[in-house]
Design a protein around this nucleic acid. Structure first.
Lengths: 344, 344
DNA sequence: AGAATAAATGCAATCGATTACGAAGGGTTT
DNA sequence: AAACCCTTCGTAATCGATTGCATTTATTCT
C-alpha cells in the first residue's frame, strides 16, 4: 500500500492467508473454498484492488498491448484508422500504444525500439514517407512479434497487410473524369517511394491509355500537401492554353484543396473550367468545401478494424507459421460538385 | 531466447558470468572491469539485446508511460493536443497510452481502470460530455497518481489543469461581431455541463450586456455538431424577420460549418446577411471554407505540451504536496471573411 | 481403526532486471 | 607474516502475480 496501490500481498496479510490463495480466490479457482473466496473478493472490493498488469505481463510474457506507428495522428485518415483499431482493441481487452513517426525514419526506428522494449504483443504500422530501409521492421518479425502493415504497406517485408484498392480507386476516379468529358487530365502524385502513390499513379495512367487519351509528363507533378498542391496547380494553369489540363486527379484531398485554392485564385471555375477529384474522402473536409470535392473514399475505420483482426488471428495461431494475409479493401467513388458538370 | 527476445540471462550464460554483472556492465557501473564491460556490450549489440521494460517497470514501480483519455481522437483539436503531448513525451523518454471515451462516461471509467491497472505514471484527461460523476477521477488521485486535466477540466476535483481563456475568447469573438456592426447576435452553445461551454456562453453574454445589446433566449441554442448547427441555424433563420439574428457565434467550428450550410441553403449571404464565427480554429477546416471562417484559435499543440510538463513537474517533486497549478493559455481571434463586412 | 480419498491451502519457483551486501583474489602496508 | 584495502564479481532478495507440487486437515471407505 505504500505506493498507494493495493497488492495481492496486502490482501493476504489482512486476511492471514497466503498470496497464492488470494490469487486463486480472485480468479475463482475450484480449489478455494466458498467462504475464503467471499472474504477475499469483498476485501478486494473494499480496498479497490486493481491487479498490477505490469506483474501479470511479466509473468505471462504477454502485455495485452498493441503498438501502433503512424506518420501523423493529425490526419483524418489516420485517426479514423486508430479509432477502428481502438474499437476492436477495447472489446478484446487490449491497450494501444500510439507512436508518430512524423514522416521521419529515425523516429520510426526509435518508436520501434521503444515498443519492442515495452514488449507489445504486436505491431500495426503505416510507414513514413522517408522509410527506405526496412531493417527495423524486419527486426520485429525476427523477434517473433506479429506485424501488420496498413495503408502504407511495405512490400519488402513479408507479413500481413491491409490496404485499399489504390489502383482501382485511381482508375475509377480518372475514368469518371473522362466520362464527364475531360480529355486533358493532370495528376498530382504522392511520394514516389510509397506504393500507394505508385498504384494511384498507375491507375491514372492506365485509365488514360485505355481511353486513348494522351499521357503528358508535365501533367504529372509530385505534390502531397496543401502548399504543394497550390504550387503545382499554378504551374498547370500557367501552361500554354492548348496544354492546360481540364481536370486534376490529386493523390489526396488536402492536395486537391491546395489546387482548388490556386484555381479559384486564377479565376477558373470548378468544375466548368477544371474539374477536380481527390483521394481518401476526408469526411471533415471534402463535403464542406466549395464546391464540395469529389473523392475516392477509403474506409479508414474499417482498415483499422481489419488490421487488428489480422493481428488477433495471428496470435491465436499455435505458432508463427509464416502464412500471411493481405487484405485489400474496396474504395468508393464519391461524386460531388467538383466533378459534376452542368451537362450531366 | 525462446520467445525470440534476448534477456540479460542469455547474455550472462553466453559469457559465463552472472546476470548481476551483465546488468551492471550495461549501465557502466564502476565496479565492473573494462574488459567485462566491453565483452558484455559487444555481445548485447550482436544479439540486439533490448532491455525488457516490463521487468524494469515492475522493479522500479515506474512504467514511464502516461495515460491519456480524450473524447475522440478524430477531432483536430484533440489530435493536436496529443501531438503536443507526444512531442514532449518522446524527448523525455515516455510512452503514451491513448484511450478514447467516445463521450461516454462508462467508457471513461473503463479506460481509467485499464490505465490504473497498467500502472501508468500519470493521467492526462479531457472529460467526456456525459461525465457528471467524478469518482473514477478522484480515485486516480487517491492512489497517489498525478492527474492533469486539459481543455475540458473538472472543477470538482482539485488537481493540475491546462485550459484556455474560454471566457475571454468568447468575449473577444462577440465584441468583434459587435464592432463590425452586428446587433442581433445568436449563440450556438455546447453541452451545458462542460465548463468550457459555460464560460464561452458567459463571455458571449457579458459582451452583449457591456455593449447594451439585447440578450434574447431564443437566440441561444444548444448545438455542438454539424447537424445540430444546421438545425439550429434553420430555426434562427425562420424567426420573424425582426427577430432574425445578424450574427452567430458558435461554440466550435464544426457547429459553425453546419450553420453556414443552413444559411447558404436559405440563400443568405455570409457575412452580409449573417456573420458567423466559430471557436477552436481548426486549421484543417476553418481557412478552407467558403467563406473562410473566423474563429478563436486555441493552441492545441501547446496545451498538450503544457499538460505533460505539469505532469513532469509533479513527479519531480519528492512527494505529492497537494499544490496544483492551473494554467490558462491565451486564445487568439482569427478574422477571416465570414466576419469581414464590405464596409470595413 | 487404519487406509484411502478429497478438499483447502501453503511453499517456492518463475517472469527479467536491479541492487544491497558479501566474498574472493591480488596487492600493499607495517 | 598478519592486517588491511581495493578491485571485481556473485548471491540472494525484490518488484506482484501465478502455478506446479507438497502439505495439512477433514471425510469416507473397508
Amino acid at each position: 500500500m505504500k505506493s498507494g496501490q493495493v497488492t495481492i500481498k496486502d490482501l493476504a496479510r489482512e486476511l492471514n492467508i497466503s498470496a497464492a490463495t488470494v490469487s486463486r480466490a480472485l480468479k475463482d479457482h475450484p480449489d478455494i473454498s466458498k467462504s475464503t473466496k467471499k472474504a477475499v473478493i469483498s476485501l478486494a472490493e473494499k480496498l479497490n484492488y486493481q491487479p498490477n498488469s505490469v506483474a501479470q505481463s511479466l509473468r505471462h510474457s504477454k502485455t495485452n498491448t498493441i503498438g501502433i506507428i503512424v506518420p501523423e495522428i493529425i490526419h483524418y485518415f489516420f485517426s479514423s484508422v486508430i479509432s477502428g483499431i481502438e474499437d476492436v482493441a477495447y472489446t478484446e481487452g487490449y491497450n494501444v500504444m500510439i507512436c508518430q513517426s512524423n514522416e521521419k525514419i529515425e523516429r520510426e526506428i526509435a518508436n520501434t525500439k521503444a515498443l519492442l522494449s515495452n514488449r507489445v504483443d504486436g505491431f500495426l504500422v503505416s510507414i513514413s514517407k522517408s522509410t527506405q530501409n526496412f531493417d527495423h521492421l524486419q527486426n520485429i518479425l525476427n523477434r517473433n512479434v506479429p506485424l501488420v502493415f496498413f495503408d502504407r504497406i511495405c512490400t519488402n517485408i513479408n507479413t500481413h497487410s491491409v490496404s485499399v484498392e489504390d489502383y482501382e480507386g485511381a482508375y475509377k476516379a480518372t475514368s469518371h473524369l473522362i466520362e464527364i468529358g475531360c480529355k486533358k487530365i493532370a495528376h498530382l502524385s504522392g511520394p514516389q517511394n510509397l506504393l500507394i502513390s505508385y498504384n494511384r499513379q498507375k491507375g491514372y495512367h492506365d485509365a488514360l491509355i485505355q481511353n486513348n487519351l494522351p499521357i503528358q509528363d508535365d501533367w504529372i507533378l509530385v505534390a502531397d500537401s496543401l502548399e504543394q498542391g497550390f504550387k503545382s496547380a499554378k504551374k498547370l494553369v500557367n501552361l500554354p492554353k492548348a496544354e492546360r489540363p481540364d481536370a486534376i486527379f490529386a493523390v489526396n484531398d488536402i492536395t486537391a484543396v491546395g489546387a482548388m485554392k490556386a484555381l479559384k485564385e486564377c479565376g477558373l471555375k470548378i468544375p466548368e473550367d477544371i474539374a477536380i477529384i481527390g483521394f481518401s474522402d476526408d469526411q471533415k473536409l471534402a463535403p464542406l468545401l466549395e464546391p464540395p470535392l469529389s473523392s475516392v473514399a477509403q474506409p479508414g475505420f474499417e482498415i483499422g478494424q481489419e488490421a487488428i483482426k489480422l493481428f488477433l488471428k495471428e496470435i491465436s495461431k499455435p505458432e508463427r507459421d509464416g502464412v500471411f494475409e493481405k487484405k485489400v479493401l474496396k474504395t468508393e467513388l464519391i461524386i460531388r460538385e467538383s466533378t459534376r458538370k452542368n451537362k450531366d
